[in-house]
Amino acid sequence: MGVLAKRKKKRDGGEIPMASTSDVAFLLLIFFIVMPMKADEIGISLVLPGKSNNKTDTAKVSQKNVAVIRVTANNAILFDEQPVRLGDLEARIRERVEANDKTVVILETHPDANYGMMVACLDEVKLSGARKFSLKTTKL
């Protein structure tokens, strides 16, 4: 009798607890909802001029309407050939564009300069709100 009672007791506790399955499911659910949010693409968009097979696409701009930002080989920034700090660049561009709304900003980068420096300048140009803008590479 004593042996039988013992065996029955053991069988009672043999179920897997199912009460927390919904908690597990919700946890996984939150993981799969949040996961794709992380990989958002953040960046600066730009349209390149494309293949210039006809000369009519290229616009001639008067020299006085041009503001040149030059990134040199050792990552220094020149605005109209004057050295400028990255933090001041936005204000300088804004000043130029407000004085003359025909201003075209040219970002000229030396091939040996860092890409990060060029993007930092591009960022400043975007922040300044200059509409007319083009990229150029220093010819060696």
Partner: peptide, 19 residues
């Protein structure tokens, strides 16, 4: 710059600099 020249050639003019 070399890659961008290639893109201009291929007429893939919309670029995006990830930051």
């Amino acid at each position: 710059d070399e890659v961008m020249e290639g893109l201009k050639e291929a007429n893939a003019v919309k670029v995006f600099f990830n930051t």
